[in-house]
Amino acid sequence: MNFNLQWTWFHRLGSPRWFYQQTQRWLPWLAVATLALLVTGLVWGLAIAPPDAKQGNSFRIIYLHVPASVVALAGYYIMAISGAVGLIWRIKLSFMLMRSAAPIGAALTFIALVTGAIWGKPTWGTYWVWDARITSMLILLFLYFGVIALRHTYSNNEAADKAGAVLSLVGMVNVPIIYKSVDWWQTLHQPATIKFTGAPSMHPDMFAPLVVMIIGFYSFYSLALILFARAEILRREYRASWVKQLVSNQPAEK
C-alpha cells in the first residue's frame, strides 16, 4: 500500500499555498455572511427584543458580552490545538494559525471584560469585582498577551512557534476553570444562560437574537483568522516562488 498517497490530502491541508488560494474564494462569502448575521442580531437584540424584567434595557449588553466571551474561549482551544498540531506534525501553517488566533482571542476577551464591566455598573453597582469568573477571564487575556509577546522575544521563528505552542497548551488548564467558575464559586457573576444540557434560562424572544449573535461572532472569528493567517503566510513565505509570482502578478493591489 502506498502510504505517501494516503497522506497527500493531509499535507495539502497543511500547505500555506493551498490555504492562501482556497481562502481567496471563501473570503467574500464569509464577509457577507458575517455582516448579515451581526446586523440582524444587533437590530433584533437592541431594538426588537423585550427588556429584562429585573435588569431593564441594560440586559441588551448580553448580545455582545456572551458571544464575545464564548468565542474568546473557543478561540483559545483553536489556538492551543493549532499549536499542538504544529508541535506533533511540524506543520508550518498550523503555527501560523496559532499566531493569528492570539490577537483575535485577546481582542474578544477584552471586549468581554469591557462590556461586562459596563454591564456591571447599572446591574451590580460597580464596574469591577474580583469575582471568580471575571478574574479567570482576566487570566485568559494575559495568556493571550503571553502568546503574542513570545513572538517578539525570539529572533528565530521556529523557536518562537514552539514556545507559543507550549504556553497555549499549558494555559488550556484555565479554560475549563472559566466555564465552571460560576458553579464552583458562588460569587457575583450570574450562572450560564446557555447550557449544553437543558433549556436556556431565557425567554425565546430574547434567546433567538443571542443565537444569531453567537453564530455571527463565530463567523467573524473565522473571517479575522483567515485574514490574519493570509498576512502571516505572506510575511513568512516571502522566499517561496509562488509568493513572488503572486506579488509580481498583481502589483496594483493596494
Binding site: S58, I111, I118
Partner: peptide, 22 residues
C-alpha cells in the same frame, strides 16, 4: 433606553471599534 442607553451604546461602540480593527 430608560437611562441604560449610555451603557448599551458605549458597549456597542467599543466592540465595533475593536472588531473593525481586527
Amino acid at each position: 433606553m430608560n437611562g441604560h442607553g449610555i451603557y448599551v451604546w458605549s458597549s456597542f461602540a467599543i466592540s465595533a471599534v475593536i472588531m473593525i480593527g481586527l
